[in-house]
């Protein structure tokens, strides 16, 4: 039993530490559905369903591909009520709740 003492203490300490540094804080942003936007959409305007490709659901925005620029939506976040159960935009009238990155 003695040979397991140090290891057991380490496991115990690790669990105590993680309890204090784990999920104690609320996420900084609400959970969002992030989409890579193809074609050119100015922020604040609705995006067509066919031009939004689902990336992930997260409180943190992902990095999209070719998002270098400052004019059009590249990675946009939508709220849960704007997305259907297949992780697609509900219709062609949804305006991004947040735009994480832009492109030219």
């Amino acid at each position: 039993m003695k040979k397991y003492f140090l290891g057991s203490m380490a496991v115990l300490l690790a669990l105590v530490f993680s309890a204090f540094t784990g999920t104690r804080k609320k996420p900084a942003f609400p959970d969002m559905y992030w989409f890579q936007i193809s074609n050119q959409y100015t922020p604040g305007y609705p995006v067509d369903q066919a031009d939004a490709t689902f990336m992930l659901e997260s409180t943190v925005a992902p990095i999209g591909s070719a998002c270098t620029g400052s004019t059009y939506d590249c990675v946009a976040g939508f709220n849960a009520d704007q997305v259907n159960s297949s992780n697609q935009l509900k219709d062609d009238l949804e305006i991004p709740a947040d735009v994480a990155s832009l492109k030219n």
Binding site: M9, A10, V11, A14, S18, G22, P27, T59
Partner: peptide
Amino acid sequence: ALFILLFVYTATTKLMEHESFRAVLS
């Protein structure tokens, strides 16, 4: 023991904050 401490601690926090861990990896 030091590595057990390190790995159990980091693995537990990664699993507890799995969503943000996955988002950062992505």
